[in-house]
Amino acid sequence: MKQPQVIVVGAGPVGLVTALGLARRGVAVTVLERAQDIVRSPRAMVYHNGVLPGLAELGILDDVEKAGFRVTDLAFWDHANREAVRFDLGVFEGHEPYAYNVHLGQDRLADVALDHLRRYSDSEVVFNALVTDVTQDAGSVSVSAFVDGHLRAYRADYVVATEGASSSVRTAAGLGFDGTTWPERFIATNVRYDFRSLGYADSTLVVDPVVGGVIARVDESDLWRVTYHEDSSLPMETVPSRIAAFFAGLLPAGASYELVQYSPYTMHQRTASSYRAGRLLLAGDAAHVTNPIGGLGLTGGLFDSYVLSEALAAVLAGTADGEILDEYSLRRRDAFLDYGSPRATQFKTLVFDTTDRAEVDKTLDVLRAAATDPEAARRQLRVSQPYRTPSLLGGAGSDS
């Protein structure tokens, strides 16, 4: 392939979707990923209906749905009373382009995006590539990376960093990452158990200060994602024993389940001071991180990607001024600060942190009323739409 116009650092779903968005617009792109393959640890897996138009525009929604499945039933589960307050995304029929969410592990989304990206001759994905240095001048960016243990040099017009909260590109750009770190450690587990037999919806927020969390069906084989939290001061090496204790409190006495996989991680509410430093651009967790309750982490990264890939391709084609990338930084950062982070924090507070039963009942009463009123239900279920920002080019683009 010819010299890349853009180097994307990080082959997670945001990086590969960004690269695909660029390649589809004729941009030569190279993706550098430090891991040897797509990372398979349990993370995001719920794609709100608001992000689906962007996947359709990229030409991958059909494959995403084939790999995953549609979900229309959601619930808030009051663990103390074993009550499910249920919602049906069917209320969006005639009001939104898609009246369902899609469930699919984020690694599988990355698989689909990678498969489509490899169909473009001017795209390249390099695994086992550890970026060690990033420098820029007025006309280009130079990237040094150890690839299979050998130092290689790359040059491009722009670099897009999507390699997570510990982004080396963000550090090289001298951009701050202000915010807070939660005192809890989040534990994402994949387990086999028939949660539907207990009355859980395919996507459920469990409201309880002890066993609160997110329970969502991963596939058709009764594999479920259960994400909960614990005190981060507890030893990491004894996480497995505490997983057993958590499920003993969550499930009926004597219930048998299979723990397939688990992944502990620290969560933050943080954002970079800017999503642009010259020819270095940030998206996804490299730009902002939030707790996972409500599914707004990857959602925000995909909305970044839709806007950025369209705008950056236009800059490279000479049909948009480079200052449009400053507008990308401003709008997407404001979206995180004004909606993404506060909304995720509201979800976390309800699920984990509210110990006053009267407050819980007050919130659940609002949800019960909304569940029986289609317009109120639509307002409650529009989780991702307010996080979306329109195309910077004035076209359909990211506003589709």
Rank of each mutant, 00 (worst) to 15 (best):
Y158M: 07
Q136C: 02
V141H: 01
G149V: 09
A138P: 08
V143R: 00
V141P: 05
R118N: 15
R155S: 13
D157Q: 07
F127A: 05
Y120R: 01
D115M: 04
V143S: 00
R170V: 03
T132A: 03
L130R: 12
A145V: 11
L117P: 07
T135C: 01
L130Y: 08
A165L: 05
S121P: 13
T162K: 09
S167A: 02
A156G: 07
H150L: 14
T132M: 04
E124H: 11
F146G: 01
D157A: 04
D148S: 10
T132F: 04
N128I: 11
R170E: 02
R118G: 11
A165D: 04
Q136F: 01
G139K: 03
L130P: 02
S144C: 12
S123P: 10
V160I: 14
A138M: 13
H150Y: 10
L151E: 14
D148F: 06
G139D: 08
L117R: 02
S144T: 13
F127D: 07
V131C: 02
V125Y: 09
S123Q: 13
A138L: 13
R118M: 11
V141R: 04
V143Y: 00
A129M: 10
Y158G: 07
L151Y: 11
V134L: 08
V141D: 00
D137Q: 06
S121K: 09
S121C: 07
S166K: 15
H116A: 06
E163I: 13
L117A: 00
D122H: 12
E163F: 12
V126S: 00
H150I: 10
F127S: 02
A156M: 06
V159R: 05
V141M: 04
F146N: 03
A145I: 10
R152E: 10
E163Q: 06
S144Q: 14
G149E: 05
D122K: 13
S167T: 09
A161T: 11
S168L: 15
R118K: 14
H116S: 08
D137S: 13
S166Y: 14
D122Y: 12
S123V: 10
R152Y: 03
H150V: 15
V143L: 01
A153H: 08
H150D: 14
Y154W: 04
S121R: 06
T162D: 00
D122M: 11
D115P: 02
R118E: 14
T132Y: 01
A138N: 12
A138T: 15
A156C: 08
A156V: 06
L130W: 12
E124A: 07
D157G: 06
V131E: 00
F127E: 02
H150A: 15
T135M: 05
D115R: 03
H116N: 04
H116M: 05
V141I: 06
